[in-house]
Design a protein around this nucleic acid. Structure first.
Length: 193
DNA sequence: TGAATGATGCGCT
DNA sequence: GCGCATCATTCAT
């Protein structure tokens, strides 16, 4: 049985949270469906000293939730058509989050398919934009409490597998930091064939 | 099979 | 205006 991850899980150093998120499950319940997936790839964005972190230039209306309590969602709109889903970490006042980059579909695959009709099913959540599109998450879902009953995470079962650490993808600054983590055995990791 | 590029809108300088 | 934590398509090898 997997248990819902409590607030204390997120209230820790971001790199630790990021690594521990691999192999855990995310569930999103709506009136129609219940979607769930196993997390296989994440990136950390940590504080005002991390140049790639949205909070690097201080608090704004958009990144507000990163400064608030851990265990909440931070979702932003990018490139005119995609969304990225983040999990806020660390104590209130310290802005940090983990970007969910890829996951393996578990439940509600039919619904994901409707939103992402093309490509292999295993890769339907393979990338931060694809994950949000397939789950139907938008900036309207930013600031949600992840310890609630609508959008929440549960612990993984057993050992997740071998974890690979690399630098982050798709950014221009902070490229020297090894803040990306993924499960070596997964077919759903982004940026691979 | 890999590199280049266009789509498209919002937040911030 | 510019740039962006992306992705699908196009074009070249």
């Amino acid at each position: 049985m997997s248990r819902k991850l409590p607030r204390s899980f997120y209230d820790r150093p971001t790199l630790e949270v990021a690594r521990n998120l691999l192999g855990s499950f995310i569930t999103f319940r709506t009136k129609q469906t219940s979607l769930s997936a196993r997390i296989v790839e994440v990136e950390a964005y940590i504080g005002q000293d991390d140049p790639a972190c949205h909070a690097a230039r201080g608090l704004t209306k958009r990144n507000q939730v990163m400064f608030d309590q851990p265990g909440f969602s931070y979702i932003y709109f990018i490139y005119g058509m995609y969304h990225c889903f983040n999990i806020v970490t660390e104590r209130e006042g310290f802005p940090a989050a983990v970007l969910l980059r890829a996951a393996e579909p578990i439940d509600g695959i039919e619904s994901m398919r409707k939103r992402s009709p093309k490509g292999k099913v295993e890769q339907i959540l393979s990338g931060p934009g694809k994950f949000c599109r397939s789950f139907g998450l938008t900036q309207d879902h930013s600031g949600m409490d992840l310890t609630g009953n609508t959008l929440y995470l549960t612990s993984g079962k057993g050992k997740p597998g071998r974890i690979v650490t690399t630098t982050r993808i798709g950014i221009k600054t902070g490229t020297e930091l090894s803040y990306r983590f993924y499960l070596a055995e997964s077919e759903a990791v982004s940026g691979t064939k």
